[in-house]
């Protein structure tokens, strides 16, 4: 049975041998691997440049075997713009968390999307600041506890959670905007197809492809990995529904309505 000819799945060699610095069960590793699987399948390792963020994925360049530039907090879309403008035929992607992309880097995100930079943005939304110890993120749900909202996020004081994905989908520069999750096998396969599509859009120079991945942060949420994935489905799905938001440059959802949706209060 354990023979080369029977091999149906192995870790892509485009992931380095380094042990991932992520907590057990964290979705970051899965998304890293999916991106590298697509790069491997498209045969574009020699032409791919990644931009890593500040946050848990700051060391993403240790794990993905492609050229990388590490950006200051939130500035990845600007860094990607600089690279892509000088290497228009290379594949450039940013990999960013919710604090990086939707708080400190909001301006860079929105303007790169508005200009339609021909890049891929991969956005991990786990509703919390993981690396700094579980503080409130722009995407933290109402009522959700974090180390800076120990009594739950109060929308009156801290504002409601921010759906940046629905926001940038309305900009003319974005060609493909979609939301996925990676904690179940079926979802992983769909997410990988979306990543492939994003890189193909870049190849065809059609504009910016933006994928949000809902992920757990079991350490920050203080749950076991499987419990956190369950919690993700129960609490994040209703506010951050999975599926395509914009396809081929056309909105496929009523994003204005989605943006006005009141966050369910979680405890």
């Amino acid at each position: 049975m354990i023979k080369e000819e029977n091999l149906v799945y192995r870790r892509t060699p485009l992931m380095t041998d380094a042990t991932l610095s992520y907590c057990p069960g964290c979705g970051h590793g899965t998304v890293h691997r999916l991106i590298m699987e697509v790069v491997e399948e498209m045969g574009i390792q020699q032409d791919t440049i990644g931009i890593s963020p500040v946050g848990c994925a700051v060391l993403a360049y240790d794990f993905m075997d492609v050229d990388f530039s590490e950006a200051a907090h939130g500035r990845a879309p600007a860094v990607a713009t600089g690279i892509k403008r000088l290497w228009p035929d290379k594949f450039v992607f940013t990999y960013q968390g919710d604090g990086d992309l939707a708080a400190i880097g909001t301006a860079e995100t929105i303007h790169a999307c508005n200009r339609g930079e021909n890049i891929c943005i991969f956005f991990i939304n786990n509703g919390i600041y993981g690396m700094t110890g579980g503080q409130m993120a722009p995407t933290t749900l109402e009522g959700m506890k974090s180390s800076t909202t120990p009594y739950g996020r109060d929308a009156m004081k801290m504002g409601p959670p921010f759906k940046i994905t629905e926001l940038i989908a309305q900009l003319p520069g974005t060609h493909y905007v979609t939301r996925h999750a990676v904690h179940k096998a079926g979802l992983v396969r769909k997410a990988k197809k979306a990543i492939r599509k994003a890189f193909e859009i870049q190849q065809e120079k059609k504009g910016l492809a933006f994928i949000e991945f809902l992920s757990n942060c079991n350490s920050g949420w203080k749950m076991t990995p499987n419990d956190s994935n369950q919690w993700l489905e129960e609490h994040m799905y209703p506010f951050y529904p999975l599926g395509d938001i914009k396809v081929d440059g056309k909105l496929v959802k009523d994003v204005c309505k989605d943006l006005m949706q009141k966050s369910p209060v979680t405890t």
Binding site: I51, S69, R75, A78, V79, A80, G82
Partner: peptide, 15 residues
């Protein structure tokens, strides 16, 4: 869109 973005575009491009 800002000097912050400009210098980070420089950072990316300089690489």
């Amino acid at each position: 869109e800002s000097e912050l973005a400009a210098i980070n575009m420089v950072y990316g491009a300089a690489g």
